[in-house]
């Protein structure tokens, strides 16, 4: 199982903060496609950074069973 976390505007647009999918060895692009199909948040996802297991990763990374993937809109702390 892969946990997908959504934050801020992304979470509001999708109407949920967490999605779980039964999958292994999927690309970030595959997950984005799934989120676009399910919630229609594709264009927002394009401006997001991606973290796997709480570390920033590049879009080319492959996500494994047990991983947590977070989509992070541009940050605005401070």
């Amino acid at each position: 199982m892969i946990s997908i976390l959504l934050f801020a505007q992304l979470q509001e647009e999708a109407g949920c903060s967490e999605v779980e999918i039964e999958a292994d060895a999927v690309s970030i692009a595959d997950i984005k496609t799934l989120l676009q199909t399910k919630y229609g948040i594709g264009s927002l996802l394009e401006s997001c950074f991606v973290a796997v297991n709480e570390e920033y990763v590049e879009d080319t990374v492959v996500v494994k069973n047990g991983d947590t993937v977070a989509f992070l809109p541009p940050v605005s702390g401070g």
């Binding site: 934050f7 801020a8 505007q9 509001e12 401006s47 973290a51 920033y56 977070a70 992070l72 809109p73 541009p74 940050v75 605005s76 702390g77 401070g78």
Partner: peptide, 26 residues
């Protein structure tokens, strides 16, 4: 403080008199 605004996953939502807005990349 500059690094916080670049790399720390925190988001700010403004609540104005006439609406709301998620602040993007500062």
């Amino acid at each position: 403080i500059e690094r916080i605004k670049e790399i720390v996953p925190i988001w700010k939502k403004e609540h104005w008199e006439d609406g709301t807005f998620w602040v993007g990349n500062q």
